[in-house]
């Protein structure tokens, strides 16, 4: 039995030790906002925050999370940076199919929280691990810059 702190609430889950956090979130806790894209850490679709840092839930065994707080795309309501980021995303219509976007947004929020005015290089470092098959990269970069400009 594991206890996970997800989006501010404690959840008891009975799952195998090696079960990645991604599947606990999606299939056990019913939080489907975090997406499955590759399962091997290549695409970033599964990005969530653990202790404020962007991590890939598909490659993080739930048993290694411990009592560190987990935040998913569903748990951003009160968050100021997150509000700015979603606004910036909507402002310039970043999304296409939208499947990669929860991961992109979680990666962008983590970046902006640690560095409110990232350079293009820093954006690349933080975001290039997130694949978008629809090719929304230009707009993602622009949206991040807009957030930086707005605050």
């Amino acid at each position: 039995m594991l206890t996970l702190q997800v989006n501010g609430a404690a959840h008891q889950v009975d799952v195998p030790d090696d079960m990645p956090l991604l599947w606990v979130l999606r299939d056990v806790l019913g939080l489907p906002g975090t997406k499955f894209g590759c399962g091997i850490g290549e695409c970033g679709a599964c990005t969530v925050h653990v202790d404020g840092k962007a991590v890939r839930a598909c490659s993080l065994p739930a048993s290694l999370v411990g009592d560190r707080p987990v935040t998913t795309i569903e748990g951003l309501a009160e968050d100021e940076v997150a509000t700015e980021v979603t606004k910036a995303w909507l402002d310039i219509d970043v999304v296409q199919c939208g499947y990669c976007q929860p991961g992109q947004i979680m990666a962008a929020i983590a970046l902006l929280k640690s560095n409110l005015h990232p350079s293009d290089d820093e954006i690349d470092q933080a975001m290039s691990g997130n694949i978008c098959r629809c090719g929304t990269y230009r707009r993602i970069r622009a949206a991040i810059r807009n957030v930086a400009g707005a605050v």
Partner: peptide, 17 residues
């Protein structure tokens, strides 16, 4: 940056585990 930093991070700290 594209293929490695996603997990290892540029400071080598490692992202998830």
């Amino acid at each position: 940056a594209g293929a490695c930093a996603g997990c290892h991070l540029t400071d080598g700290h490692g992202r998830q585990v």
